[in-house]
């Protein structure tokens, strides 16, 4: 186990190195001059030259990338071209919102997903199963920018039940919860659908497995068969899906944050790409990628605990 974690750690470093190079070179290659974005449309040629010099944009590519890496090695993620503030600070302000959104969406997704999946599996081939399967597939198929806009229209504007946008209140207050509902549904729908499908197929498979039959034969109560023997075993693949989805959610908040005006890392990334704010793009992408890898690592560890058959060499 320890050796697995150590190996994964080295893989992570390699990954981050690769990602930083990918991002750095793509931002370098992309048309668009960061100095022009800082200077605005009214800046003259000499204004721009001064800004370029000041930001170190006149250095050759490898010099720029090298000094960036050297700084990162010392834990310094550099300064935003736009605000001239440390990138780490800007991300620290926004990350809690993204995390909140991802966690809330995951909660929505897990509750709905497991519930719908169980119903489907327990009432296999009934109309309930068909309905829930249809909904699950529709959930994966719905464009989430469209879903978000429709939800705002219906629940915030017409019915006025929920606030339109923003996450300005803290977590565990009524206001804070209310603000979270629509964004969490918007972002969580497709994960809910994926979880539901996984729960359904996994349950169906486990129900037919030998140990469940044995349990039934031994006269274990039906309720216990479902909740103790079946569910526990059916959860193993479900946890992978949850892990994968959670990692994906962190990256997938981009559109939801835009629609609901949430001040998160996703929106920071879009704005930074649009403004050619290279250090900011780098910092936020590295963060999201690291989290994705870490979440998957945790999933793998949890896996070995619930399923002792799996061993990592």
């Amino acid at each position: 186990m320890i050796s697995m974690i150590v190996r994964r750690f080295f893989q992570l470093i390699f990954l981050l190195f690769g990602i930083s190079f990918l991002v750095f070179s793509s931002m370098y290659l992309a048309p668009g001059d960061p100095a022009a974005m800082v200077g605005g449309p009214t800046a003259t040629a000499s204004d721009l030259e001064a800004i370029r010099d000041n930001l170190g944009l006149n250095d050759p590519f490898l010099v720029q990338y090298g000094s960036y890496l050297a700084n990162i090695a010392q834990g310094d993620f550099g300064f935003s071209y736009q605000t001239r503030q440390p990138v780490a600070e800007a991300i620290a302000v926004r990350f809690p919102n993204t995390l909140k959104l991802a966690v809330a969406s995951m909660i929505v997704a897990v509750i709905i997903g497991i519930f719908a999946g169980l119903i489907s599996a327990l009432r296999h081939n009934s109309w309930l199963d068909v309905t829930s399967t249809t909904f699950a597939l529709a959930g994966i198929s719905i464009p989430n920018f469209w879903l978000g806009a429709l939800l705002i229209l219906v629940f915030s504007v017409n019915l006025q039940w929920l606030p339109v946008a923003g996450l300005s209140n803290s977590w565990f207050t009524v206001e804070g919860m209310k603000e979270m509902i629509l964004p969490a549904i918007t972002l969580g729908t497709s994960s809910a659908a994926m979880i539901a499908r996984m729960v359904r197929s996994s349950m169906l498979e486990v129900v037919r497995a030998d140990f469940v039959r044995t349990a039934r034969a031994k006269g274990v109560k039906e309720r216990n068969v479902i909740w103790i023997h079946t569910l526990k075993n059916a959860m193993i693949p479900v946890i992978t899906v949850i892990g994968l989805n959670f990692g994906g959610l962190l990256g997938g908040t981009i559109i939801t944050e835009k629609v609901f005006a949430i001040n998160g890392v996703g929106r920071l990334m879009i704005d930074a790409i649009a403004a050619r704010d290279f250090p900011m793009v780098q910092g936020s992408v590295l963060l999201v990628a690291t989290l994705f890898v870490l979440v998957n690592l945790v999933v793998d560890i949890v896996y070995t605990y619930i399923d002792p058959r799996i061993k990592y060499q």
């Binding site: 990602i19 990918l22 991002v23 994906g248 981009i254 990628a289 994705f292």
Partner: peptide
């Protein structure tokens, strides 16, 4: 895999 898909597309 670890690169958020939509972001990769935006960069490209």
């Amino acid at each position: 895999f670890s690169f958020p898909g939509i972001l990769l597309a935006m960069l490209i």
